[in-house]
Each structure stands twice: as structure tokens, then as C-alpha cells.
Computed example of a mutant assay.
Amino acid sequence: MVFTHDTTASLIAAVALVNSAEEPDTMTDPDRLDAFFAEHGYTGSHTRDEAELAAVRALRAPLRRLLTSDRDTAVALVNDVLARHRAVPQLVRHDGFDYHLHATDPAAPLADRIEVETAMAMVDVIRADELSRLSVCADDTCGGLVLDLSRNRSRRYCSTACGNRIAVAAYRARKG
């Protein structure tokens, strides 16, 4: 395992949230946010309204910047997020998961919790000097982010669809 469970889960959720901004936008209504909340195992306050949706959607660009920054810029961004939200890391255990870190109150707005959890995950990424595990999709027509948790660091595409699109184009170019 490259990172602890909570770090991996936060990174996967952050990449999914950032990639939801790619066309077609997949974070368009409270029901989709509710599905995201459940899929990524978030706990705590969840108002399921348009204001919460707007706040979470507004995180996509700042999280993209954080996840694609060089190490020094990422450090500055992480420190800003943690200071702005007055993050206080605490060990918690819930939903069958052993002790892991939470750094916000469960009653804090979902967008704040997502931002802080992503920043906390990036602390581990930065300390391990593993920023190369985050990149932009190798498909030039896609701007999606890739989280490569493979042992051999071989993941290049944000989705199977992008990988297949490139493979089919290469095949057609060879046969053409």
C-alpha cells in the first residue's frame, strides 16, 4: 500500500471531484452530490441542498491546482487550507475503519471537510515526496486528473474510456 486508507480515500475522492468538472459535468444536482457523498464514504453534516452543491462545485478548481502543483506550491496551499479552517487533526474510528485522521468538526460544511481532508492527504503525499503519483490524463483531448497508486507507476489515463480511445486511435493509425 502506498498510503494509509484515509489518505488514499481522500485522494480518490478529490480526483473524482476535480474530474467531475470535465465534460460532461457530472456534479450538476444535489442527487449527484449525494451519490458522491455516499460513494466516497463521507460522514457528518450533509444538507443535500443547492448551496452545498455550489460550495462543493467551487472546490474543483482550487483542488485541481493543489493536486497538480509542484511540491513547494502544494505546501503553501496545504498550509493555507489548514490555517484557514483551523484544522485540528484527531484520531477517529468509525464505519468499520480503524483509527484515522479527521481534522474538522463533523458538523462543518461538507465543502470545508472535503477541502481539509484533501489537504491532510496531501500532507502525506508531500512528506513522502510522491507528487508524481498525481498527473493530468495522457489523452491530449482530456484534462482529467490521474491518481496512480500502481506499484510500477504505469497509470497514464484518468479512465478506461480515455485509455481505450487512445488504443483504438493507435490501432486505426497502424491499420489505416
Rank of each mutant, 00 (worst) to 15 (best):
S150W: 03
D34W: 14
L149I: 04
F36A: 07
L91D: 10
S69N: 04
L149R: 06
L149M: 08
L134R: 03
L149W: 00
V75H: 01
E52V: 04
V75N: 00
P30E: 08
T104F: 00
N79L: 01
P89W: 01
S154Y: 05
A111I: 08
D95G: 13
N79T: 02
I166W: 07
L11G: 04
V18T: 09
V56S: 08
I166Y: 00
H100N: 08
P89M: 09
T4C: 09
E117R: 14
L33V: 05
V75F: 10
P106Q: 00
L77C: 05
Y157M: 00
T8Y: 07
R48C: 12
D98K: 10
R84Y: 03
N152T: 12
A107T: 15
R113V: 07
G176N: 07
M122P: 07
T7F: 02
F37L: 05
R165Y: 02
D70H: 06
E130Q: 13
A169V: 11
T68P: 01
D95E: 15
G176S: 08
A38V: 15
A138G: 11
L82N: 03
V56T: 03
A111E: 02
A87R: 10
D148I: 04
Q90R: 15
R127A: 13
V116D: 03
E50C: 03
S132W: 12
R84Q: 14
L82G: 04
I126T: 06
L66Y: 01
A121N: 02
D98P: 05
E39R: 14
H102D: 02
H85E: 06
A76R: 15
P62F: 09
S159H: 12
H40N: 05
F37C: 01
R151W: 14
H40R: 08
T160D: 13
